[in-house]
Design a protein around this nucleic acid. Sequence first.
DNA 1: GGAATTTCCTAATCTACTTCATTTTTTATC
DNA 2: GATAAAAAATGAAGTAGATTAGGAAATTCC
Lengths: 193, 193
Amino acid sequence: MDDFSEIKKYVAKHIQLTEKEESYFVTQVRITKIKKKEFIVRPGYTCRFRSYVVKGAMRAYLVDSKGQSHTIAFAIEDWWISDMNSYLNQEPATLFVEALEDSTLIQLDYLSEHRLLETIPKFERFFRIVSQRSFAFLQRRMLSNLSKTAEERYDEFMQKYSAIANRVPQYALASYLGFSTEFLSKIRNKKSK
Amino acid sequence: MDDFSEIKKYVAKHIQLTEKEESYFVTQVRITKIKKKEFIVRPGYTCRFRSYVVKGAMRAYLVDSKGQSHTIAFAIEDWWISDMNSYLNQEPATLFVEALEDSTLIQLDYLSEHRLLETIPKFERFFRIVSQRSFAFLQRRMLSNLSKTAEERYDEFMQKYSAIANRVPQYALASYLGFSTEFLSKIRNKKSK
DNA sequence: GGAATTTCCTAATCTACTTCATTTTTTATC
DNA sequence: GATAAAAAATGAAGTAGATTAGGAAATTCC
């Protein structure tokens, strides 16, 4: 079991590669180990990679003009993360992407991705499927934010993503769900009675 | 200038088709005319199409348990719309998709899309790009909702999408931005002074 | 072109959630 | 394992935005 076995399985869920293609794919990515609290993306610097989490937990967030943080995404094992606006358009990032735990990532460079798409067009399909799913996911989240109360969103998240909720700090979860950390405390306190 | 000329241009922005391929593409879609206030998607029925707006204005929204509407998307000329969760997974819709004006749509059926992807793999690339852009768009909207006040979101929308804001009813705009129609009135009233 | 329906406005009251300030608990570090 | 630093809890006071209810404009439609 090398570090690539997980991502190979992940890719194989969506497209079938020959052994040669799989080997080529592996040459186009790199493994990065990162310590808790370190960043792989910072505002102002162009995001060069999309990152697949082999092990660990990551968080992407925006710091607004008042200094408050807003979490746009979490990623644990088998999820992707990056500042997609920065990566896709190769323009300066607006987000921080930070490790919440010591983590192992597989990173795909922007140029490598394009080489990969040229060389193995099946990856067009792969990234089509991945981004369609991401879109559908985000649309559900958006609707949840528009239509539910803070407590309802909390309940929903705990039910669907308890694996994430139990691993990330509470301030990060609150800022993902769209309310203050104090209010999350209140919700939890209320429930524990 | 037939009804297909716009969508052909749209496709050509992302992929290059031969004349034959372009003709084949056109055989896989259909044109639908729809009157204001009619629906192309309703909760409970599986969404069979993704729809490109040739002319008109559309709105996708959720009606929550309290009977309130929440707009997840608008589409005017040159935009796509559908209930993506329903369409991609071919499961019952949760959304309404309604015409805000008499509209002309080009609709791509789920099965036709898959035939198209088999026959002309370049469309894998096309839909990859389209959905990546949709994802990036939605992520910016989500961040805006998490980090800005109602009035700031209104200002941002008016600046970026005044073409949409000026064509849709105010209750629809308010429910897209995530606040009540009364509050939108208040914001507008305040600005007119 | 007049009635009906839908959309929009206004203003008072209300509430879900924020902000601020302090304390307690947990985690990291040498 | 003591000390520092970060995270979480608690409670009081404040506010952005919701709700309710009424009426005024627009639109639609026969």
